[in-house]
Design a protein around this nucleic acid. Structure first.
Lengths: 132, 132
DNA sequence: TATCAAGTGATAATTATTCTTATATGCTAA
DNA sequence: TTAGCATATAAGAATAATTATCACTTGATA
Protein backbone atom coordinates (compact mmCIF):
# COMPACT_ATOMS: atom_id res chain seq x y z
CA UNK A 1 0.00 0.00 0.00
CA UNK A 2 1.87 3.08 -1.16
CA UNK A 3 0.37 5.29 1.43
CA UNK A 4 3.20 5.98 3.79
CA UNK A 5 5.00 8.32 1.41
CA UNK A 6 2.26 10.88 1.45
CA UNK A 7 3.06 13.72 3.67
CA UNK A 8 -0.35 14.93 4.51
CA UNK A 9 -1.07 18.09 6.35
CA UNK A 10 -3.14 17.24 9.35
CA UNK A 11 -6.03 19.46 10.14
CA UNK A 12 -5.07 20.47 13.62
CA UNK A 13 -7.02 22.96 15.73
CA UNK A 14 -4.26 25.51 15.23
CA UNK A 15 -4.57 25.19 11.49
CA UNK A 16 -8.29 25.55 11.66
CA UNK A 17 -7.85 28.82 13.51
CA UNK A 18 -5.37 30.03 10.92
CA UNK A 19 -7.70 29.09 8.08
CA UNK A 20 -10.49 30.87 9.82
CA UNK A 21 -8.43 34.04 10.13
CA UNK A 22 -7.37 33.82 6.51
CA UNK A 23 -10.93 33.49 5.32
CA UNK A 24 -12.29 36.32 7.40
CA UNK A 25 -9.67 38.93 6.82
CA UNK A 26 -7.70 40.92 4.36
CA UNK A 27 -6.01 38.91 1.67
CA UNK A 28 -2.55 40.34 2.23
CA UNK A 29 -1.67 39.73 5.85
CA UNK A 30 1.66 39.20 7.50
CA UNK A 31 2.33 36.16 9.62
CA UNK A 32 2.41 38.33 12.69
CA UNK A 33 -0.95 39.90 11.92
CA UNK A 34 -2.41 36.45 11.62
CA UNK A 35 -0.78 35.41 14.85
CA UNK A 36 -2.18 38.42 16.70
CA UNK A 37 -5.69 37.69 15.54
CA UNK A 38 -5.42 33.96 16.03
CA UNK A 39 -4.37 34.19 19.65
CA UNK A 40 -7.73 35.72 20.41
CA UNK A 41 -9.34 32.45 19.42
CA UNK A 42 -6.57 30.20 20.60
CA UNK A 43 -4.46 31.89 23.27
CA UNK A 44 -1.83 29.23 23.67
CA UNK A 45 -0.93 29.39 19.99
CA UNK A 46 2.75 29.95 19.40
CA UNK A 47 4.16 32.35 16.79
CA UNK A 48 6.40 29.61 15.46
CA UNK A 49 3.34 27.58 14.64
CA UNK A 50 1.91 30.36 12.56
CA UNK A 51 5.13 31.05 10.70
CA UNK A 52 5.64 27.35 10.10
CA UNK A 53 2.12 26.84 8.87
CA UNK A 54 2.19 29.81 6.55
CA UNK A 55 5.25 28.43 4.80
CA UNK A 56 3.70 25.00 4.61
CA UNK A 57 0.64 26.48 3.01
CA UNK A 58 2.82 28.21 0.46
CA UNK A 59 4.51 24.92 -0.33
CA UNK A 60 1.16 23.23 -0.59
CA UNK A 61 0.16 25.87 -3.12
CA UNK A 62 -2.61 27.41 -1.07
CA UNK A 63 -0.89 30.76 -0.58
CA UNK A 64 1.74 32.81 -2.30
CA UNK A 65 4.28 35.27 -1.05
CA UNK A 66 3.67 38.89 -1.75
CA UNK A 67 6.71 41.12 -2.02
CA UNK A 68 5.91 44.66 -1.19
CA UNK A 69 8.78 46.30 0.58
CA UNK A 70 8.20 46.71 4.22
CA UNK A 71 9.78 44.51 6.81
CA UNK A 72 7.38 41.58 6.91
CA UNK A 73 6.53 39.02 4.31
CA UNK A 74 2.92 39.14 3.27
CA UNK A 75 0.89 36.21 2.11
CA UNK A 76 -1.67 36.30 -0.64
CA UNK A 77 -4.65 34.00 -0.43
CA UNK A 78 -5.81 35.00 -3.87
CA UNK A 79 -4.52 32.44 -6.31
CA UNK A 80 -6.18 33.98 -9.35
CA UNK A 81 -3.99 35.51 -11.98
CA UNK A 82 -3.88 39.05 -10.73
CA UNK A 83 -1.69 42.01 -9.92
CA UNK A 84 -1.47 44.65 -7.21
CA UNK A 85 -1.92 48.29 -6.55
CA UNK A 86 -0.11 49.61 -3.50
CA UNK A 87 -0.88 52.93 -1.88
CA UNK A 88 2.33 54.68 -0.96
CA UNK A 89 0.65 56.61 1.80
CA UNK A 90 -1.39 54.07 3.73
CA UNK A 91 0.17 50.91 2.38
CA UNK A 92 -3.13 49.37 1.43
CA UNK A 93 -2.93 46.70 -1.22
CA UNK A 94 -5.63 46.27 -3.83
CA UNK A 95 -5.93 43.36 -6.19
CA UNK A 96 -5.85 44.39 -9.80
CA UNK A 97 -7.27 42.24 -12.54
CA UNK A 98 -6.13 42.82 -16.06
CA UNK A 99 -7.75 41.84 -19.28
CA UNK A 100 -4.44 42.11 -20.98
CA UNK A 101 -0.85 43.00 -20.37
CA UNK A 102 1.83 43.32 -22.98
CA UNK A 103 5.28 44.69 -22.89
CA UNK A 104 7.96 45.07 -25.47
CA UNK A 105 11.59 44.78 -24.53
CA UNK A 106 14.11 47.30 -25.64
CA UNK A 107 16.36 44.87 -27.51
CA UNK A 108 19.39 47.14 -27.34
CA UNK A 109 19.34 47.23 -23.59
CA UNK A 110 17.69 44.04 -22.48
CA UNK A 111 18.22 40.55 -23.68
CA UNK A 112 16.08 37.92 -22.05
CA UNK A 113 16.37 35.41 -24.82
CA UNK A 114 17.98 32.78 -22.63
CA UNK A 115 15.74 33.05 -19.63
CA UNK A 116 12.44 31.44 -18.90
CA UNK A 117 9.80 33.81 -17.66
CA UNK A 118 7.14 32.24 -15.51
CA UNK A 119 4.95 35.09 -14.52
CA UNK A 120 4.95 38.78 -15.19
CA UNK A 121 3.82 40.62 -12.10
CA UNK A 122 2.69 44.18 -12.36
CA UNK A 123 2.88 46.42 -9.33
CA UNK A 124 1.13 49.72 -9.57
CA UNK A 125 2.36 52.21 -7.03
CA UNK A 126 0.48 55.36 -6.32
CA UNK A 127 -1.97 57.00 -3.98
CA UNK A 128 -5.39 55.58 -3.25
CA UNK A 129 -8.68 57.41 -3.16
CA UNK A 130 -8.75 57.94 0.58
CA UNK A 131 -5.19 59.23 0.78
CA UNK A 132 -5.06 61.32 -2.35
CA UNK B 1 20.68 85.10 2.79
CA UNK B 2 18.26 82.19 2.75
CA UNK B 3 20.88 79.62 3.27
CA UNK B 4 20.31 78.28 6.74
CA UNK B 5 17.18 76.39 5.79
CA UNK B 6 19.01 74.09 3.43
CA UNK B 7 19.63 70.77 4.94
CA UNK B 8 22.61 69.73 3.01
CA UNK B 9 24.10 66.32 3.11
CA UNK B 10 27.71 66.69 4.04
CA UNK B 11 30.23 64.70 2.11
CA UNK B 12 31.81 62.79 4.94
CA UNK B 13 34.50 60.16 4.52
CA UNK B 14 31.96 57.47 5.38
CA UNK B 15 29.70 58.69 2.63
CA UNK B 16 32.53 58.74 0.16
CA UNK B 17 33.25 55.13 0.95
CA UNK B 18 29.60 54.23 0.49
CA UNK B 19 29.44 56.06 -2.83
CA UNK B 20 32.54 54.29 -3.92
CA UNK B 21 31.04 50.91 -3.11
CA UNK B 22 27.83 51.81 -4.88
CA UNK B 23 29.65 52.84 -8.02
CA UNK B 24 31.87 49.80 -8.18
CA UNK B 25 29.39 47.07 -7.47
CA UNK B 26 26.16 45.45 -8.36
CA UNK B 27 23.22 47.79 -8.60
CA UNK B 28 20.98 45.88 -6.25
CA UNK B 29 22.83 45.54 -2.98
CA UNK B 30 21.53 45.27 0.54
CA UNK B 31 22.69 47.66 3.24
CA UNK B 32 24.60 44.86 4.89
CA UNK B 33 26.40 43.92 1.69
CA UNK B 34 27.50 47.50 1.37
CA UNK B 35 28.56 47.59 4.99
CA UNK B 36 30.64 44.45 4.59
CA UNK B 37 32.49 45.85 1.59
CA UNK B 38 32.85 49.30 3.06
CA UNK B 39 34.52 48.13 6.24
CA UNK B 40 37.41 46.90 4.15
CA UNK B 41 38.10 50.49 3.20
CA UNK B 42 37.03 52.04 6.45
CA UNK B 43 37.20 49.53 9.28
CA UNK B 44 35.70 51.63 12.03
CA UNK B 45 32.55 52.23 10.01
CA UNK B 46 29.42 51.41 11.93
CA UNK B 47 26.48 49.50 10.43
CA UNK B 48 24.10 52.13 11.69
CA UNK B 49 25.89 54.68 9.57
CA UNK B 50 25.36 52.64 6.45
CA UNK B 51 21.69 51.97 7.14
CA UNK B 52 21.17 55.61 8.01
CA UNK B 53 22.89 56.84 4.91
CA UNK B 54 21.07 54.50 2.59
CA UNK B 55 17.75 55.84 3.73
CA UNK B 56 18.99 59.39 3.44
CA UNK B 57 20.06 58.71 -0.10
CA UNK B 58 16.63 57.35 -0.88
CA UNK B 59 15.07 60.49 0.52
CA UNK B 60 17.47 62.59 -1.47
CA UNK B 61 16.34 60.76 -4.58
CA UNK B 62 19.66 59.14 -5.37
CA UNK B 63 18.51 55.60 -4.72
CA UNK B 64 15.28 53.70 -4.69
CA UNK B 65 14.07 50.73 -2.73
CA UNK B 66 13.78 47.48 -4.53
CA UNK B 67 11.12 45.12 -3.28
CA UNK B 68 12.02 41.55 -3.94
CA UNK B 69 10.96 39.36 -1.08
CA UNK B 70 13.87 38.03 0.89
CA UNK B 71 14.79 39.32 4.28
CA UNK B 72 16.79 42.42 3.40
CA UNK B 73 15.83 45.59 1.63
CA UNK B 74 17.73 46.15 -1.56
CA UNK B 75 18.64 49.49 -3.01
CA UNK B 76 18.65 50.34 -6.66
CA UNK B 77 21.15 52.87 -7.93
CA UNK B 78 19.64 52.83 -11.37
CA UNK B 79 17.23 55.72 -11.61
CA UNK B 80 16.33 55.11 -15.23
CA UNK B 81 12.83 54.01 -16.01
CA UNK B 82 13.29 50.29 -15.90
CA UNK B 83 11.96 47.01 -14.59
CA UNK B 84 13.39 43.80 -13.20
CA UNK B 85 13.83 40.18 -13.91
CA UNK B 86 14.41 37.99 -10.88
CA UNK B 87 15.77 34.47 -11.07
CA UNK B 88 13.84 32.25 -8.70
CA UNK B 89 16.77 29.88 -8.35
CA UNK B 90 19.79 32.07 -7.74
CA UNK B 91 18.03 35.29 -6.87
CA UNK B 92 19.96 37.32 -9.39
CA UNK B 93 18.28 40.53 -10.45
CA UNK B 94 18.57 41.85 -13.97
CA UNK B 95 17.47 45.25 -15.14
CA UNK B 96 14.91 45.11 -17.87
CA UNK B 97 14.32 47.98 -20.22
CA UNK B 98 11.06 48.15 -22.07
CA UNK B 99 10.20 50.04 -25.18
CA UNK B 100 6.60 49.86 -24.21
CA UNK B 101 4.29 48.51 -21.59
CA UNK B 102 0.54 48.58 -21.69
CA UNK B 103 -2.08 46.92 -19.66
CA UNK B 104 -5.81 46.91 -19.77
CA UNK B 105 -7.83 46.63 -16.60
CA UNK B 106 -10.68 44.23 -16.31
CA UNK B 107 -13.34 46.81 -15.53
CA UNK B 108 -15.68 44.31 -13.94
CA UNK B 109 -13.14 43.33 -11.36
CA UNK B 110 -10.88 46.31 -10.92
CA UNK B 111 -11.74 49.94 -10.60
CA UNK B 112 -8.79 52.26 -10.24
CA UNK B 113 -10.58 55.36 -11.38
CA UNK B 114 -10.09 57.18 -8.11
CA UNK B 115 -6.45 56.36 -7.56
CA UNK B 116 -3.37 58.06 -8.89
CA UNK B 117 -0.83 55.71 -10.34
CA UNK B 118 2.72 56.95 -10.25
CA UNK B 119 4.70 54.16 -11.72
CA UNK B 120 3.89 50.75 -13.08
CA UNK B 121 6.61 48.34 -12.10
CA UNK B 122 6.94 45.08 -13.89
CA UNK B 123 8.62 42.17 -12.17
CA UNK B 124 9.43 39.22 -14.33
CA UNK B 125 9.99 36.08 -12.33
CA UNK B 126 11.56 33.05 -13.86
CA UNK B 127 14.78 31.16 -14.26
CA UNK B 128 17.91 32.68 -15.68
CA UNK B 129 20.26 31.24 -18.27
CA UNK B 130 22.77 29.83 -15.79
CA UNK B 131 20.15 28.18 -13.62
CA UNK B 132 17.79 26.94 -16.28
C1' DT C 1 34.15 82.48 19.74
C1' DA C 2 29.76 80.39 21.04
C1' DT C 3 26.35 77.93 18.85
C1' DC C 4 24.12 74.71 16.14
C1' DA C 5 22.88 71.27 12.80
C1' DA C 6 24.65 67.32 10.78
C1' DG C 7 27.06 63.28 11.41
C1' DT C 8 29.08 59.48 13.77
C1' DG C 9 30.35 54.97 16.63
C1' DA C 10 29.01 52.09 20.10
C1' DT C 11 25.64 49.81 21.97
C1' DA C 12 21.01 48.73 23.38
C1' DA C 13 16.68 47.66 21.71
C1' DT C 14 13.30 46.03 18.51
C1' DT C 15 11.23 43.33 15.02
C1' DA C 16 10.67 39.43 12.33
C1' DT C 17 11.68 35.08 12.00
C1' DT C 18 13.78 30.53 12.70
C1' DC C 19 15.63 26.88 15.52
C1' DT C 20 15.65 23.58 19.27
C1' DT C 21 13.79 20.59 22.37
C1' DA C 22 10.67 17.96 24.73
C1' DT C 23 6.27 16.41 24.24
C1' DA C 24 1.72 14.98 22.16
C1' DT C 25 -1.21 12.60 18.86
C1' DG C 26 -2.97 9.59 15.67
C1' DC C 27 -2.18 6.13 12.25
C1' DT C 28 0.10 1.74 10.90
C1' DA C 29 2.42 -2.60 11.31
C1' DA C 30 3.40 -6.47 14.00
C1' DT D 1 -3.01 -3.63 21.74
C1' DT D 2 0.88 -1.86 21.39
C1' DA D 3 5.36 -0.20 19.64
C1' DG D 4 6.95 2.97 16.39
C1' DC D 5 6.88 6.54 13.16
C1' DA D 6 5.53 10.91 10.97
C1' DT D 7 3.38 15.00 11.89
C1' DA D 8 2.62 18.56 14.90
C1' DT D 9 3.00 21.47 18.78
C1' DA D 10 4.42 25.13 22.75
C1' DA D 11 7.88 27.44 24.73
C1' DG D 12 11.65 29.71 24.68
C1' DA D 13 16.35 30.48 22.90
C1' DA D 14 18.66 32.14 19.05
C1' DT D 15 19.49 34.80 15.00
C1' DA D 16 19.32 38.41 11.46
C1' DA D 17 18.14 42.80 10.02
C1' DT D 18 17.29 47.04 11.37
C1' DT D 19 16.42 51.07 14.26
C1' DA D 20 16.88 53.97 18.36
C1' DT D 21 19.60 56.18 21.81
C1' DC D 22 23.28 58.72 23.45
C1' DA D 23 27.47 61.06 24.02
C1' DC D 24 30.78 63.03 21.24
C1' DT D 25 32.86 65.41 17.00
C1' DT D 26 33.08 68.68 13.41
C1' DG D 27 32.59 72.25 10.30
C1' DA D 28 29.80 76.15 9.17
C1' DT D 29 27.34 80.22 10.95
C1' DA D 30 25.85 84.15 13.82
Amino acid sequence: MEKSREKGLKLTPQRMVIFHILLENDRHMTADEIYQKARAEYPMLSPATVYRNMEQLVEAGLLTHLDLGGPSTRYDTNLDDHHHFVCEKCGKVTDVYLKDIRYELDPEKSDLSNVRIDSPQLYLHGVCGECG
